[in-house]
Simulated scan of single mutants.
Amino acid sequence: MTASQSQLSHALRSQRLNQITHEPHSRLDSLVKSHDPFSSRERFARFVAAQYLFQYDLEKLYNTPALIELVPDLPARCRVKQARLDLADLEHPLPQGDETIREQSLSTGAALAWLFVSEGSKLGAAFLLKRMPALGLSETFGARHLGEPEGGRAQGWKHFVAALDGVVLDAEQERQAEAAAIAAFERFVVHLERCFA
């Protein structure tokens, strides 16, 4: 076992997932930049379409009773409705989502890992929101899905991470969670490529 593997095995689950997804997260960031989604409303609308598809994937997870027991405000955290309204504001057609992720029977660890990726993106959304006035958009028009969550971004993230780190998982469920976090980034890449095709 290397030193970094040893650190991973003892780190909090949220820290492990952060480390494991560092590379796919960096690749996704580079891909987003390559599509230049903040250069025009039309390009931003394609970015929102990808966000909508990802939130559509996770909509059922955000409304799963067993997960709501762990994170009581989970249903309010879903941004599928906001993304849908943003696309209407931007006069962009609503893309057709598929049931690939929605129909999967995910373990608690895997489900939380998918949500970890979605919830983590809200932290970066604060920086994206600052670029919206240049496009004539805001958290009440065209960029609702980037808006400040109730209670604030930092507090919301802190509560989610506490729930994620507090759940007891066995070794197989931990492995499933790690694989799911990487799969979530890969799924967003698929949506992004589709929407910018």
Rank of each mutant, 00 (worst) to 15 (best):
S6W: 10
Q7R: 12
H10W: 02
A11S: 15
R13I: 12
R16C: 09
L17A: 03
N18G: 12
N18Y: 05
N18S: 14
T21F: 00
P24D: 03
S26R: 14
S26E: 13
S26A: 14
D29Q: 10
D29L: 04
D29T: 09
V32S: 00
K33D: 13
F38P: 03
F38L: 13
R41P: 07
F44A: 04
V48E: 06
V48P: 00
Q51K: 10
Y52I: 03
Y62C: 11
Y62S: 04
T64H: 12
P65G: 07
A66I: 11
L67G: 05
L67V: 04
E69R: 13
E69W: 00
L74G: 01
P75C: 08
C78L: 08
K81V: 14
R84D: 08
A88K: 09
D89Y: 06
P93E: 04
L94K: 07
G97L: 07
G97C: 08
D98K: 07
T100Q: 14
R102Q: 15
Q104L: 15
S107Y: 09
T108I: 15
G109P: 10
G109H: 05
G109L: 08
A111G: 06
L112K: 07
L112V: 09
F116M: 05
G120Y: 02
S121K: 06
L123V: 15
L128I: 06
L129D: 01
K130G: 01
K130M: 03
R131F: 00
A134L: 05
L135N: 03
L135K: 02
T140I: 09
G142V: 04
H145A: 03
G151D: 04
G152H: 05
R153E: 07
W157C: 08
W157I: 06
H159A: 14
V161P: 06
V161R: 14
V161G: 10
A163C: 02
A163T: 01
D165N: 12
V167P: 05
V167G: 05
V168T: 15
D170N: 15
R175G: 09
E178Q: 13
A181Q: 05
A183G: 02
A184M: 07
F188N: 13
V189Q: 12
V190L: 11
L192G: 03
L192V: 05
